[in-house]
Design a protein around this nucleic acid. Structure first.
Lengths: 149, 149
DNA sequence: GCATAAAGTTAAGCCCGCTTAACTAAAAAG
DNA sequence: CTTTTTAGTTAAGCGGGCTTAACTTTATGC
């Protein structure tokens, strides 16, 4: 019998190892680009959720509208994002990644994925299918949880 | 047959979901404590690796000795860590968590674990043992990879 | 013993992110 | 058509993190 305790334990151990590695890589990369973490986070947000307005930025990152405006301004200066007027509501602005911004995100993702590929290479042939199945189960569960919240 | 491609895909999907959620929770908590992320990271470092000297801090976080000194100073002021002289080498200082610091880390961990416990509750009874096994395999592989590096 | 290296500290200065407050411009409400 | 609300910008000011440069103190090499 597998007790719930054992499962929680496994998840926590995995998370500790995983987070440690993943965070370090992520921060190192952000630093190497010369961007700050908030700046980088905005780029990631745009990559995942697509173009959005200032108000979404200030809401998602829990900062004032003023802070959001200044934050994006620097990314515009750097050529990573583009700010355009919403034709329907001329007060609103829409920000989106430029090719340069997309490129940067791509490189960052690859960096993050490299460790995982090494990890895959460490697994034995008979373990692989089991791991695939388990990860799919976990991902599905996580998505349901996100939808519920 | 399970192709390596499928495995990499599953890992990446899982990581995207996992990171998103995990990072957000972590940053939110750090913010709620009033500590900055570098400060919080130092506490986590001390929790995982135990007491260490200034030089380890500056090395691990890739900052100058001056920066490390100032960073830890604030944590000492806040009562989260304690700075003591190394009796063997009186130039060196050893920093470690105070009870208050340990308490904070504990609370932060619990916060981080809560989502995972919800996740566990979403899994079906027959999936659970599979997930346990897979996570253990992955954790072991990750540890080996860390040792090698 | 004396020069040199090593571990930390302190201070000045820079950039960053954030907040509040005062603003512009456009949309919605009445 | 005027008032109010909404979206965003700009500027001043604060604290944080980081660096360099100049230090103090302790250990090491010769």
């Amino acid at each position: 019998m597998t007790t719930p305790v054992q499962l929680k334990e496994s998840l926590r151990e995995w998370m500790d190892v995983f987070m440690h590695r993943s965070m370090r890589g992520w921060m190192t990369f952000a630093k190497s680009t010369g961007l700050s973490m908030p700046q980088f986070s905005v780029l990631m947000q745009l990559h995942h959720r697509g173009p959005c307005g200032m108000s979404e930025i200030s809401e998602k990152f829990d900062i004032t509208a003023a802070a959001a405006s200044q934050l994006t301004e620097k990314l515009v200066q750097g050529g990573y994002i583009e700010r355009t007027e919403d034709p329907n509501d001329r007060r609103a602005k829409s920000i989106q990644l430029t090719p340069k911004g997309k490129e940067l995100v791509e490189v960052g993702m690859k960096e993050r994925y490299r460790w995982m590929d090494e990890l895959v290479s460490k697994l034995s042939a008979e373990d692989k299918p089991k791991v695939v199945e388990a990860l799919q189960v976990l991902t599905e569960a996580a998505r349901q949880l996100d939808k519920a919240t």
